[in-house]
Design a protein around this nucleic acid. Structure first.
Lengths: 348, 348
DNA sequence: TGGTCATGGAGAAACGTATCTCCGACGCTT
DNA sequence: AAGCGTCGGAGATACGTTTCTCCATGACCA
């Protein structure tokens, strides 16, 4: 390439990168030759030289061989899409990597930083990454592992909001469908529920199950409604809980919302068309994905976070709001449906 | 690292990669020191030296700033997930890149090959990649651009199958909701429909709209049912067509399936719970994603495809079956629903 | 005793870029 | 005429691997 243009390697590099002191004449000539030859600078060499690959990792704890979990598929898909976009907007590309099997693929990819979704307490992978000096930003407040920064929903406020909403709709005994794992989401949500129960003097009514097992969810939903002290309203922490609870309610001849109020946390729009439509809590994964990636890239590029003078032990955190999408399943007085009244079929 | 272990660089490389002739003793010693130091070989340097990055790109033509289209979101999400898994299973990582803006991110990433979803005719990006000697495998039979290999559904057979299915359910005038773009999927499907119309002597009844515009779809669905020669069955090529057609049918007081049979192509499971549930054609994106990635990696690693001696102009192609998920919307005699008959509520 | 061979490991080149240093040439000032 | 500043660009080095070549050491055999 340098030879073809009749100049030195230095000149080529300077011309293409807009550096050095070169007359525009030389610059354009070099670029023209490069174009003609279809020359592309080697990304690998640049990475080796500069120490920057322009690649960031996205990883999530998994419970199988799939690179992401099923229970949160809609959440993850939206979040990953937003993260990919945000990265591209700033000139980075995003690689999805499995949290397990650290040594296979991870060593083969040069990463400038990593986004970790839902790290577990004392996550060994996060610690490992952090030890290597790589910026790590987590989606979900980290339990006990050091991260550069983190973003999370305000789960406490979200759960309290839902419980208030259900109470106002007439619920007297609100139940919870929760998980057995120790991630932040499950933990904070459950704690908020228990705290609320204490404050209003209701005895807790909940069932916990391993969230990664789709069948266990259906069983737990059934168990919750089969209790002698059956709740008259239920909040389900995981996406499939809505349909599971609806099916269980049908088995016990509970009308929703008349006999049972229902809310679940989900990003899926199927709940807009179920019978009845189910109120859902959206964690706004798009905003989370965008924020997380931007924080990560700020850290990579050495832009100090402006909001805090000194990061605390777990880096600086940021709480994002959630959104409650109220539908019929959580309203005792359903709003008049907008479906048109049946009229006689008109021909053509 | 080499100094810390008291051996040469060569020995370190050999020990870690399992090459060269070294006694197990030396090997384990080097590995132990590496472990203690937290040493990781530089992926950038390895890539530079070997010419392999272990990275493959996944790109899809977009109609906005988002890295993937909305109309096919469920398809894309599933396909991308399968592709990511398949890549990881073979030690590769997958990077999602936008089809537009060739020069920003693309130059910064060292790719071993690329998967292209739905390349357009004479796709300049595909041609560019191919010119650089990078293997390119496309999802969707390429129109006129050179690719290493391609995978596609048998759209012809799929459409014919649906039309037969509808005809057997009693349809006399089958309409089509199609797109205006020139991608293979739209083109082949429409051609199959027109051919079928000719063969059975039905006049074609279709509306075409720009598939990337979600509103245009609803309008086109309405237009199709507003025609004087209104069809008594419709097949919609794109995911949102099902709900759009259902809404339009409601406006014209057409009962589904009694007055109007409905089928659409979709990967979304919302159509299992609509009223009535809608028959869908699944393109089996998971299998496509897996196959595409495996073909690409075969090409990267120089594994010749076994099925064909010499690749034709557009590389070797492979047709994958689709799956018709029959639901109430396309059956005049609906099967008895499997919902359990109501039983009296049993207490606890 | 000299030659051959296997073993264990070191040396050095090359991958392609970015960047620091330096050099020649030219114009200008004193 | 000598010195100085600027412009345009070349040289050289380092980034950290992989891999090819080659060397030293013994052991074994004729």
């Amino acid at each position: 390439m340098a030879a073809a243009a009749g100049v030195s390697i230095t000149t080529v590099s300077d011309a293409l990168n807009g550096k050095g002191r070169l007359p525009d004449e030389t610059r354009t000539k070099v670029r023209e030759v490069a174009e003609r030859l279809g020359y592309r600078p080697s990304a690998a060499a640049r990475t080796l030289r500069t120490g920057r690959s322009g690649l960031i990792g996205l990883t999530v704890t998994t419970y199988g061989q799939e690179p992401f979990t099923f229970t949160e598929f809609a959440y993850f898909a939206e979040m990953a899409r937003a993260a990919t976009s945000a990265a591209l907007n700033r000139g980075y590309a995003l690689v999805v990597l499995p949290a397990s099997s650290r040594h296979d693929v991870w060593s083969n990819v040069a990463l400038d930083g990593t986004v970790v979704i839902d790290p577990s307490d004392h996550d060994p992978m996060v610690a490992d990454l952090y030890r290597q000096g790589l910026p790590v930003v987590s989606d979900g407040k980290p339990g006990n592992c050091p991260v550069t920064a983190w973003v999370d929903n305000d789960h406490h406020a979200a759960v309290l909001g839902i419980l208030e909403h259900l109470a106002q709709a007439g619920a007297r005994r609100i139940g919870l469908l929760t998980g057995t794992s120790t991630d932040t989401y499950t933990r904070l949500s459950t704690e908020a529920y228990l705290g609320w129960c204490r404050s209003v003097g209701q005895e807790p009514l909940y069932e916990a199950y391993p969230a990664h097992d789709p069948c266990a969810g259906a069983v737990a939903a059934d168990r919750l409604l089969a209790r002698p002290d059956r709740p008259d309203a239920v909040y389900g922490l995981f996406d499939p809980n809505g349909t599971d609870l609806l099916a269980a309610a049908r088995r016990y001849h509970l009308r929703v919302p008349d006999d049972l109020l229902l809310v679940c946390c989900s990003e899926s729009d199927v709940y807009a068309t179920t019978e009845p439509p189910i109120t859902t809590l959206s964690l706004k994964p798009r905003r989370i994905g965008t924020t997380v990636v931007n924080l990560l890239i700020d850290a990579i590029e050495g832009i100090a976070p402006a909001d805090e003078t000194a990061a605390d032990q777990n880096g600086s955190g940021q709480l994002m709001p959630t959104e409650l999408i109220v539908r019929r399943s959580s309203q005792r007085r359903p709003p008049r449906t907008t479906v048109a009244a049946p009229r006689p079929p008109g021909e053509a």
